[in-house]
Design a protein around this nucleic acid. Sequence first.
DNA 1: CTGAAAGCGCTTACAG
DNA 2: CTGAAAGCGCTTACAG
Lengths: 340, 340
Amino acid sequence: MAKSPTGNVTRTDVAKVAGTSVAVVSYVINNGPRPVAEATRQRVLDAIKQTGYRPNAVARALASGSTKTYGLVVPNIGNPFVASMAHMLLQESLNHGHVMLLGDAGDDRKRELEIIQGLLNRQVDGLFYNSVDRHPYIDVIQASGTPLVMLDRIEPRPGVSMLRVNEREAARQVTAHLLSHGYQQVGMISGPLDMLNAQDRIQGWRDALAEKGLLADEAMIFPANYTRQGGYDAAQRMVASSCLPRALFTSNEGQAIGCIRALSEHGLRVPQDVALVCFNGTDQSAFHVPTLTTVRQPLRDMARSAIAMLKNWDGDAQLAEFPHHLEIGESCGCQLTQQQ
Amino acid sequence: MAKSPTGNVTRTDVAKVAGTSVAVVSYVINNGPRPVAEATRQRVLDAIKQTGYRPNAVARALASGSTKTYGLVVPNIGNPFVASMAHMLLQESLNHGHVMLLGDAGDDRKRELEIIQGLLNRQVDGLFYNSVDRHPYIDVIQASGTPLVMLDRIEPRPGVSMLRVNEREAARQVTAHLLSHGYQQVGMISGPLDMLNAQDRIQGWRDALAEKGLLADEAMIFPANYTRQGGYDAAQRMVASSCLPRALFTSNEGQAIGCIRALSEHGLRVPQDVALVCFNGTDQSAFHVPTLTTVRQPLRDMARSAIAMLKNWDGDAQLAEFPHHLEIGESCGCQLTQQQ
DNA sequence: CTGAAAGCGCTTACAG
DNA sequence: CTGAAAGCGCTTACAG
């Protein structure tokens, strides 16, 4: 009921109503660090209810040194895979009493830096970071002393924790799966070539071809952005250059969908005319026509692990590697083969 | 270089290096509210560079009363339409120097409240809110005095600003479009029936049928969640009950995709066997096979307007209504008709 | 144009 | 078990 100059009920108001000091109010709210007599506790609780008091987390953060806030920096929340990851991270953070500042770089490097500065200034307790390109702004983050977990693969660095799946092995497996269908050639819609994970996947693709003693024809690699448009454009290029292979490996779900669209415009069907697999599918892959054969990442486990890394931060880099999981759908043609 | 007890460079350190008072450092950083001599200004700027000083936004927020932070509460960031909206809001907020606390309720009402409390405690300058169900927690927000913009349709309330498209009219138009193809009946996969926007759309559907003197058969309404699974299940129910109409209106992109998947499992094609339109398509609709005929919302304009409402907040409710936009794709069969 | 100081709403030793 | 008080890093009147 009583109001401070800013119009809000403060701890002082509660103390006044309860007839105690503000310290005791703190002890009640935080369950410590000092014990409070049960009777006093009740008076404080009543006063809180009566005044409608709500603790000011900003003041608490300044005094305690922790904002109970994490930051998440992503290239674009409009990318469904990114959104799935964000969803998991958000859920797990909340489970640990943390809210999340979300920075969406809009695929723009300049904005990314601006966002990082903004989050650091706001004293986040830690940062999850999926960078726009292969040049993440690690230095400025480390200089601030803020715990950092990279969500994408980068060159290892002291003090930088990282989350990743073994993309090379996953790519090898997915390519091998296609080859096991009997194809002699597998094309690849890769990510931008300067991204490390794109290189990893290309390596895996090479590995699988080599195992079968097949030629890894570099002309079969089509770099593209990790978007539907990227997949669409790459497929158009393939068709235009008459380099369309019978089997195709795309680097994410969006590329796969864009690619399937482009193929359909040329009367080509998946899997009947082109067998296709993709990386980083989401829950949505199961609803496509055809359903997508995809490598899934264990996003919930990864989110849990990322949060744990931040909580147990000791300044040392931690690396968590996760198993991928090949989910067979219709797009690779297995099921078609079985039917025949 | 100098360090405060918390290990960070503070304004005091900068003042010491520059040989001024902390007030002057503030004036330089904030470009006011008092003028500073150019020579002094330079010394301060040098000192900032030399010390690597970074302003503490938490302290600033406590002193100034503004966190330069907005909050966004959504049912689930994994929903692509929600993610698109969030993306726009994030971009526009950043343009105004605000970061965004993102709350993902995980489609759970209890978590939603928990999140709202968390954001209010953190003193956000304003809240954008898309609620899980028809019972948004408006009271607790208003009690805190935090400016609020509802992103979805709710019962009008004093002091609650709102963003919306005229869903009834949009639904009428979309239904009329299907009817113009000659169908005598249009089925509807609606949202959950207790949601106001679901009711609005059903009204629009009725309007269109009435215009043509057709019967609005309630058995043609299939309530479903706003997800792919929801659309999938609804379509399965239709087929099972032999109530599958020749033309179908789905309430979002996810439902449309789930529905198309379910139909395909019964050998039914869109648009050849069932003509289909949907609400709230995203950029992704253009890459589907078939491309989706959809009602689009002007998300960028809506985001701009939402930010403006918060900035110009005066305690009064503002209502902004936006035009929808019918985007013709392949799924409704227009283009097919033309070819024949 | 510049400085000394109060105040934002908390936390947490330090005394009792 | 409880209270008085310093301190977190800023902003911003108030004096000069």
